[in-house]
Design a protein around this nucleic acid. Structure first.
Lengths: 120, 120
DNA sequence: CGGCATCCTCCGGGATACTG
DNA sequence: CAGTATCCCGGAGGATGCCG
């Protein structure tokens, strides 16, 4: 993130800069299904910290990918959703979803066997 | 990278884990066009360090995405190319390429104006 | 040419505590 | 509930130098 004056060498780079944050993939995937409250996301991403979830959402918001709707009430309620701009990422997210679905196990196995080898 | 026993929450996550390295996007994009020598990649990615290029290529190699062909000769020549497995990433890379091509300028402008605001 | 090895810096990101 | 504010550590990643 934060490339300021850095010119991108190719478009793939800038795309990854937008969606490549550590938790952005999962967050976007969840928001692709439907809008979610902060606490929902937090619950569905058991290992993320509150702080990181906030930070990642802020970055997505600043890039215009995510909309933050605040309901003035007690207790507070904040709902996150994809903007129209954010929805233009859908083909990419679906492509990643498909690929991951097909090959994740392969990647995991390959990495674990490699690890086993290096231990021998 | 390096998730060992960490279970992925969703497939998008694992996909990003494979292609989400800082330089992997550009490297894959270049290799999608055609195989390249190490020095070619280095030249086309002016800001990457030799060390990082090596590391990123090694990770892609260990994940079975990239093939490393060594030509025994003096001076040495090493050529990198996408494996068949690596080529399964093509739809994702093309989707990212398309998106980036359409919206990169928008992202850059948005980020720069945000920066200008925060300076006021 | 295409690498490792080393050293060192910086900041991503976790833990914890406090607030409207 | 949905955040900020601090503190702090590990590891990503840069610079440099040597090697087959």
């Amino acid at each position: 993130m934060e490339n300021e004056l850095c010119q991108y060498i190719c478009p793939v780079e800038s795309t990854l800069d937008v969606i490549g944050g550590k938790w952005k993939g999962i967050v976007l995937y969840k928001l692709l299904e439907r809008p979610r409250r902060f606490s929902e996301l937090k619950r569905e991403l058991p290992t993320i910290t509150q702080r990181m979830l906030t930070l990642q959402l802020r970055e997505l918001e600043e890039d215009g990918i995510v909309h933050r709707e605040i309901y003035k009430q007690i207790p507070p309620k904040v709902e996150y959703s994809l903007t129209d701009f954010g929805k233009t990422l859908e083909p990419i997210l679906l492509a990643m979803l498909t690929w991951g679905g097909q090959y994740t196990s392969q990647i995991i196995e390959r990495r674990s066997t490699r690890k086993a080898q290096s231990a021998s």
